[in-house]
Design a protein around this nucleic acid. Sequence first.
DNA 1: GATGAATGAGTGTTCATTCAT
DNA 2: TATGAATGAACACTCATTCAT
Lengths: 201, 201, 201, 201
Amino acid sequence: MRARDKEGTRQRIIEAALEVFADKGYNDALVDDIARTSDTSKGAFYFHFPSKHAIFESLLHTLVERLVNDAEGAIDRSEGALDKVESALQTVLATLSKHEKATRLLFVEASGLGRAFDRQVRAAHQAFAKVIARHLQAAVDDGSICPLDVELTAYAWLGAIHEVLYMTLIDDSKKRLETLATPLCQLLVRSLKRPVDNACD
Amino acid sequence: MRARDKEGTRQRIIEAALEVFADKGYNDALVDDIARTSDTSKGAFYFHFPSKHAIFESLLHTLVERLVNDAEGAIDRSEGALDKVESALQTVLATLSKHEKATRLLFVEASGLGRAFDRQVRAAHQAFAKVIARHLQAAVDDGSICPLDVELTAYAWLGAIHEVLYMTLIDDSKKRLETLATPLCQLLVRSLKRPVDNACD
Amino acid sequence: MRARDKEGTRQRIIEAALEVFADKGYNDALVDDIARTSDTSKGAFYFHFPSKHAIFESLLHTLVERLVNDAEGAIDRSEGALDKVESALQTVLATLSKHEKATRLLFVEASGLGRAFDRQVRAAHQAFAKVIARHLQAAVDDGSICPLDVELTAYAWLGAIHEVLYMTLIDDSKKRLETLATPLCQLLVRSLKRPVDNACD
Amino acid sequence: MRARDKEGTRQRIIEAALEVFADKGYNDALVDDIARTSDTSKGAFYFHFPSKHAIFESLLHTLVERLVNDAEGAIDRSEGALDKVESALQTVLATLSKHEKATRLLFVEASGLGRAFDRQVRAAHQAFAKVIARHLQAAVDDGSICPLDVELTAYAWLGAIHEVLYMTLIDDSKKRLETLATPLCQLLVRSLKRPVDNACD
DNA sequence: GATGAATGAGTGTTCATTCAT
DNA sequence: TATGAATGAACACTCATTCAT
């Protein structure tokens, strides 16, 4: 490895971990792989992180935070509640599709790891759902859209996004993602329906 | 173990496998657990199945087939394309929520197992999406709904369903599922929007 | 399997065992293989033989007996001590090369099985060595050849035969065996040297 | 274990493997036995060698090389072709009898391991046969002995040596080996016979 | 701080043997 | 007698974690 640069080493390990976890999944990713990919050593890994489990959790946490912040930032720059909703949606979608590895980690590899990770994964999903829900609620509050179960809708949207991303990520033809963002977004927004006579039920 | 009953033993092993995989996830489930749960032995397991991997795949395949058939059956009993769409949706949702373990296996534990299972998992998702897509297309064809990307919509719906089920399954308060079925269904159907002037764009 | 023919079943199992052991070696031969090859079942195997170990030993014993008898028979038909020696040699060689599977079992697969078989293998080698030694001794006794350590010579000869057979059996070009019998035989007989002045040292 | 000494550990494992394989044979030798005997651990074993199969092959290869080199060295120090032949013989014999474990490994335990090791075992035997054959050929070339099939003779000799060693090694009365070396050697050299009239046939 | 050799509990799989039918 | 499903001890190999240097 390079010079004695504690923080640099730590960063390289984190990046390597993201890479390896995204590529092989949690169980098939070896601490050895991460050490090798990060161009450090197993000792370095265990100096910086207490366990494989811990770095994965940490990664999950960091990524959620970053992605959520990205989304919130973009949303803030929009005006009007409905706009903000579309914005939230577009941004979450864009953000996720921009960070393929992170997304794969959060939405593919983080599943099915057994009870040990359930809490964490639920938290990750919740974090995204909350961004969506908050802005849906704002739109409801200011009358832009009719009242609805914002939590349910948020999860439904998140799931829709997740599934479309998943099938895209898991597929070999990985190029169609951008093409899908807009129609998916339209589809979801439509589910908020503004009824014919402009009145809520 | 009980009497010498080949098919019975095989069934007990299958059920035990479903139970254990659903409970612990693929990696944390031991072949020993399955043997113990099925009240047979490791030898019996390997007499009936070539590997842990194989029984999991087989389980996936069987469950998808069964659930898809359930759904198709219910759909056939509805009249009218739009009805069938709602029916498909309701039925898939009902079927999935009725078979909690199977659903958990298919939509939670089957993810993140690494590349070895990707093909199979994709196939499972596709199977469900196709049921939805077929009936959406029928509705489009007979003018009940406006043209739209039925494949995308099918995956989006599946994802929405999946996510809602997931958060429900993963949560401790497992009782809310029935409550959610109807609003979720409404939400999704709304996304097919019949616009104000009754004309498609 | 066929009719209830106890002895027939037993024979088929014995033949299958010879076949499978010769083909795969003791450890790689499965009792299942023997059952399948004999067109019977594992149960039948264990009805007729107490264990895999036991049938192998029994096979070894039977084959040694048969081969030794073959050789003795042929030798009896020769006249004169030296003739008998050459005869013993030729016959053992011919017999071994005629029964390839048995030979492979006795001289290849029976080695390296660990202490459990050592006694038996030693006995098998001894049996052959004794045939050779007895006739060498007869030749010494009647003055046809000079006195020598007949036991050592017998083992040396056996080893020479064994090695040549082994390299032939283990090789892909299995055809050269007959070609080698005569020169090998000459070589060995020469080692009994009749010195120049026809006198022993 | 002792100090962290990579090469030392590796050597201890190699020696332990030789010991255990020679003692129990390949199949009955457990990787755990080797780990225990080497005073290291299973992990250390697998750190240094990829598999049980691999260390056995490696051992075979190393031992053949070492023994062949020993023999060649001693032979080089003799003068005259026929002398060299006797020398080769004496030396191979002496070398083999000096390294009992190695010899047992090469000539006893390495047999009967199934097709997986055939190539390697054949190569080992060939290596020794070649040493003998080369010097026999030299003796033929310089007229010291009459023309003969040197390859066949080499294998016959090797087999004779092997068998005598084998019966000695396998026997409990392990002390007779030195006693046998000289008469065996004489026996074999006699098989090159220089006929009465000093002419070749 | 970093290295990588060493540890050892854990697990999928094999297969000789048993036994209900 | 024969069958083949069932048993379970055994074992090679893995890999997260530790620790001497």
